[in-house]
């Protein structure tokens, strides 16, 4: 009996070990994922925080895109120039021009009416759950500052007007505020194109007139004013095609409600340019 125990145990364990060992070896060989060794090298150079500022879903995705030629090292907001050069070397691409992006809140919610007095959790997502939110316009900024709370770089602060203010120097366009905004009115846009339509309402013009002073009524005056075909009114709201926009500012002048603005002035960006165009003057009102 005792010998049986010992023999049985040895054989069972040996057998199991052999079967599983062989099975796993076969599986890992047959189901092998061919991995470019440069991916690991790149991932060592990249910051590895998976912030998403490059617009890709993490550092591994960025490494793969670099190797495929779909991305440039400068798109990573967090690596210094010398690391970017090293990355370019390994990936065999050019360093590229960094296209810095910042979060822009596309709403000015000036005196937008409140449907009800909300007193609950001081969180925009929570407020938005209750009967569609406290603001009359369902596309408006609620103003409780969840975007400011969630920003890991403290780039968003709430102004006195209960609208978020984004610091372009701290913002790395990680996208956390975009994810958390229940109204989906925050977008990550290039720093170099600073003229934006600061409204997200798809309501018809007549309705918008009643709801908010700073709402787009789709009057198409901006579309008519633009010489470069860069702004169009679609779905009751004006949209800028940033590829065509030359920042001439004609739409800013044309907009009767002052909704299209230069956000460098609107958001009080630290280094204002010395040139003062008619657009900037109007935005500053």
């Amino acid at each position: 009996m005792e010998l049986g125990f010992i023999i049985g145990s040895i054989f069972v364990m040996l057998g199991l070990g052999a079967i599983f060992g062989a099975g796993l070896a076969v599986a890992s060989a047959k189901l092998k994922v061919d991995r470019d060794p440069r991916i690991d090298e790149l991932m060592d150079l990249l910051p590895g925080v998976n912030c998403g500022a490059c617009g890709l879903s993490g550092c591994e995705a960025m490494a793969k895109a670099l190797l495929a030629g779909n991305a440039e090292p400068s798109e990573c907001a967090l690596i210094p120039p010398d690391v970017a050069e090293r990355v370019a070397e390994v990936a065999g691409t050019d360093v590229g021009q960094r296209q810095k992006r910042v979060a822009v809140v596309l709403c000015r919610a000036k005196d937008v009416g409140r449907r009800h007095d909300y007193s609950g959790l001081s969180d925009c997502s929570a407020a938005a759950l209750l009967q569609g939110g406290p603001t009359d316009c369902v596309y408006a900024c609620i103003g409780l500052g969840t975007c400011a709370d969630v920003c890991p770089f403290e780039a968003i602060t709430m102004g006195e007007d209960e609208l978020p203010r984004v610091d372009p120097e701290k913002c790395v366009a990680c996208g956390k505020c975009v994810q958390v905004c229940p109204r989906n009115i925050i977008s990550l846009l290039s720093v170099e194109k600073y003229v934006h339509v600061l409204c997200s309402s798809h309501d018809k013009g007549g309705q918008v007139r009643k709801l908010c002073e700073a709402g787009c009524i789709a009057c198409k005056l901006c579309e008519k004013a633009c010489e470069f075909d860069a702004i169009k009114v679609e779905d009751c709201i004006a949209k800028i095609d940033y590829e065509k926009c030359t920042l001439c500012g004609k739409c800013v002048e044309a907009c009767p409600r002052g909704i299209i603005r230069d956000i460098r002035i609107d958001q009080h960006w630290p280094k204002a340019t010395d040139e003062v165009t008619a657009a900037e003057v109007k935005s500053g009102e």
Binding site: M1, G4, F5, I7, G8, S9, F11, V12, M13, G15
Partner: peptide
């Protein structure tokens, strides 16, 4: 399966 090696009476349950 292993009864031909270790016999029919061996109860490996509590051990293994």
């Amino acid at each position: 399966i292993m009864s031909f090696i270790m016999g029919n009476e061996v109860n490996l349950v509590p051990i293994l």
